[in-house]
Amino acid sequence: MKKPLSKDVYIYLSEFRYQLRKFLNFSESAAREVGITPQQHQLLLAIMGFPNRNAATPRELAERLQITHHSCVGLIDRCEQLELVHRKKNPADGRSVLVELTSKGEKILERLSEVHLEEINRIQFLKKFDEN
């Protein structure tokens, strides 16, 4: 018979969810403060953070964002209208395009990434403080 989970496990899982939600709230607010939506921020980050290149196909981005391909194309369209991203031909596959950040998109993403790193470091500092 399986042993029931301890109260400490529930506390740990609850704290993890709480800290995750706090970080997501922080992230959503930070995106809005620079004039973009949280989804637009996620798209910019998914593009720049794509492994081994600074561009990705809409299908790859949909997977990274865990949204449908159709929804991702709409998000790309809106970001393109705001001059945050642009499409270019995919040299590896002429049937698809790659999405890249514009210089405006890069500047916004860098600003957001700096404040996100500060928040992550703050959270880690608090975690170390709590352990002592």
Rank of each mutant, 00 (worst) to 15 (best):
G35C: 10
R53L: 00
A62R: 08
L45R: 12
T37I: 05
V73H: 03
Q39P: 09
S29E: 13
R17T: 10
R78N: 15
H41P: 02
E83I: 08
Q66K: 15
V85P: 01
V85D: 01
H86R: 00
A46P: 01
L24C: 13
Q19I: 09
R87K: 09
V73L: 11
F26N: 03
R64D: 08
L44S: 11
Q66T: 07
A31G: 02
N52F: 02
F23T: 07
P38R: 14
F23I: 02
P51I: 02
K22H: 11
N52P: 01
R17Q: 13
P51H: 04
L75D: 04
A31D: 03
H69R: 13
S27T: 12
H69I: 10
L20T: 07
A31H: 06
Q42F: 09
A46V: 03
L24A: 12
C79M: 10
L75M: 07
T57Q: 12
H86Y: 07
K22I: 12
H69Y: 14
R17L: 14
G49N: 01
S29F: 12
E63G: 05
L82M: 11
L75F: 09
L65F: 10
T57I: 08
R87Q: 03
I47D: 00
A62S: 13
G74R: 10
S14N: 09
Y12F: 15
L75A: 06
L13W: 09
E15P: 03
S14I: 09
Y12W: 14
L24R: 15
L43V: 03
L84C: 04
A55D: 02
A56S: 06
H41R: 14
P58N: 14
L45P: 01
A31F: 04
A30T: 10
S14R: 13
N52I: 00
F23H: 08
C79F: 08
G74P: 01
A62Y: 05
L75K: 04
L13I: 09
R64T: 04
H70L: 14
P38M: 15
D77I: 08
E80A: 07
C72Q: 06
C72M: 09
N54M: 02
R17E: 14
L75R: 07
C72E: 02
V85Y: 04
A55H: 00
R78P: 11
M48W: 00
C72W: 08
Q66A: 13
V34S: 08
L20D: 05
M48C: 02
V73P: 02
S29V: 07
L75Y: 04
G74A: 09
F50Y: 11
A46T: 03
S14C: 12
Q66V: 12
Q81I: 09
F50V: 00
L75G: 02
E33T: 05
S27M: 12
E15K: 12
R53N: 00
Q81K: 13
M48I: 00
K88S: 10
K22E: 13
L24W: 14
Q81S: 10
F26M: 05
L65C: 10
L65H: 06
A31C: 07
T68S: 11
L20W: 06
F23E: 05
Q81P: 01
L44T: 08
G74I: 06
T57G: 06
H69L: 14
I76V: 15
Q40K: 13
F23Y: 11
P58C: 11
